[in-house]
Design a protein around this nucleic acid. Structure first.
Lengths: 218, 218
DNA sequence: TTGATAATCTAATGATGATTAGATTATTTC
DNA sequence: GAAATAATCTAATCATCATTAGATTATCAA
């Protein structure tokens, strides 16, 4: 066999989705290229047609995941809702997103370490290899920048609420970390067959954190 | 060289502590036995004198970490403080503990996956190997049981507060997950050189979640 | 069509890294 | 102080991958 007929050939996208799934189960280091390939009926070697190497594939998975949440959060931040409504919807959107794709959600939590630890190529690397590596480093940097920007969206909405005196004054940094920690964890424990739907969980979480921000009745 | 003089020889405990540290940096799969050995000035082979294999070492690290937090939480649960005070102190103890040992804290979050995924020995395993594996499986099972017990401590205190009507009625399961997610995340982002001390962070987190549980003023 | 390009495959290659075997030297026990 | 035991070491072994080389076959553009 060589090239498969069009209806059986797999796209970059399909590989990313499948890889996220395999990654969630076993973790980056423990999953082999063969595992990922098997999930889309390819051989390991074929993956190299789509991705330069394993690190690049991981990065693509994380980029896709981040892109997805950002696309849901940003319109809310940009809207002219009240801080209360903004934050409520942001929490709900984020949590629901995580429950809809736990694979990517868990990867975002667990595999970022691996990405950070990606090692440089040996000094013997050829010129084109070097360029490829530069490219990887750049994309990785952009990924982290976008991730920070994501966290900043929450910070800003919370800060806005405090300034407008609809939220009680909390330490914005710590509150945001607590909030996002609670969210990230959802990607770890959530099971679709569980007692509650993603929407219900999301709504409860929003309620919890909005309560924590309520002004004291004086 | 063979056996080192007593003052240079390393204990099981020292290996566990060092391993947690290395693990935090690189993750289980990426950490080699050689890395861990180097951290205590041993060769990889020597580690096998102290631990049956890499999985057993990881389990020992996690057990130590869990044991530590349990020892701090359990007396509080058993005390006769009010639910409010109990929960406050439990949160503070847990968070401070995590900031004091981020290595183990992060390992508890990230490496449990690896532990769950630990593979069985090949069918060709000899009888003693099989016994060793049984032992590992048992200890792993006990570890998870204790971890569940830990989570249950929080659940029970929250439930108690709701029953006594000092906390508003929330979904205990989800609230606990949110709480512990926020905690776990601390082990990931906390840096000793940061803006706030572990105690300050702990206190803010306790404040946040206790606020979220406050009864509405009616 | 026919050449170029894309997507796959099979079969190496090369490293890395866990684990074991067999010394060697300190401690401890009797 | 011998014998037994503990803690280490060096030097294999053995497997498992990531990655590369070199075909092979499908699709597409001219």
């Amino acid at each position: 066999m060589a090239r498969k007929p069009a209806d059986q050939s797999v796209s970059r996208e399909e590989i990313i989705v499948a890889a996220a799934d395999v990654l969630q189960r076993s973790g980056y280091e423990a999953t082999t290229m063969k595992d990922i390939a098997a999930a889309v009926n390819l051989t390991a070697a074929s993956l190299y047609h789509h991705f330069r190497n394993k690190d690049a594939l991981l990065l693509a998975v994380l980029e896709a995941g981040l892109q997805h949440v950002l696309s849901q959060i940003e319109p809310i931040v940009a809207s002219n809702l009240s801080p209360t409504d903004k934050l409520t919807r942001m929490i709900e959107a984020h949590v629901v997103g995580l429950t809809q794709n736990t694979a990517v959600g868990a990867a975002m939590v667990f595999e970022i370490q691996s990405l950070m630890g990606a090692k440089e190529p040996p000094a013997s690397a050829s010129a084109p290899d070097h360029k490829a590596y530069q490219d990887f480093v750049l994309r990785r940097h952009e990924f982290f920048a976008r991730r920070d920007q994501f966290e900043n969206s929450f910070r800003q909405v919370i800060r806005e609420g405090i300034e407008k005196q609809v939220f009680r004054p909390v330490d914005v940094g710590i509150f945001t970390k607590a909030l996002l920690g609670a969210h990230n964890w959802v990607g770890v424990w959530y099971k679709p067959e569980g007692r509650l739907t993603g929407e219900q969980i999301a709504s409860m979480m929003a309620d919890t954190f909005l309560r924590a921000l309520e002004l004291s009745i004086s």
